[in-house]
């Protein structure tokens, strides 16, 4: 597997969330992802970017286009913030769990919308989430 293209974006306000949605949509269109795949990944990106902003106090996202050895194309997004982190990840992944103003669908919902979902967090350790969708 190799990374054929990589870029970084800031998530510091709600307009950055809109910009990320548009960027993910454009990249996936270019790479020939189906409309449903695009919509799922864009929605997952929107949820996680909002988490980064609201709970993480802002952060960054790295967008990588992947090429597997057998020629599959994927899009990987890596969200990172240096906020308070998540104490209980299992609980945070459950639908309806929220410590804030949201619906509590962000993490669990995003996980269902992508092919691969990896989360790394802990108290006072910030949060790093990687999602990948393959074409």
């Amino acid at each position: 597997m190799s990374v054929s293209q990589s870029e970084t974006a800031q998530i510091q306000d709600s307009e950055d969330i809109v910009r990320l949605r548009q960027r993910v949509r454009d990249v996936m269109k270019n790479e020939g992802f189906s409309l449903v795949d695009q919509t799922k990944m864009v929605t997952a990106a929107s949820e996680l970017a909002r988490n980064t902003l609201i709970y993480g106090g802002g952060g960054t996202v790295i967008l990588d286009i992947l090429k597997s050895q057998v020629g599959r194309v994927g899009l990987r997004l890596f969200f990172e913030d240096h906020g308070p982190g998540i104490a209980d990840i299992d609980q945070a992944l459950k639908d309806g769990f929220t410590t804030g103003v949201g619906l509590g669908l962000g993490l669990g919902g995003s996980k269902r919308l992508v092919n691969e979902f990896v989360i790394d967090s802990g108290p006072d350790a910030g949060t790093r989430i990687t999602i990948t969708r393959w074409r």
Binding site: V36, T39, K40, T43, L103, R112, L113
Partner: peptide, 13 residues
């Protein structure tokens, strides 16, 4: 949109 409907359901909304 159909793709949005599919996504809403999988998101759990």
């Amino acid at each position: 949109r159909p793709a949005v409907a599919i996504t809403i359901v999988e998101l759990g909304l």
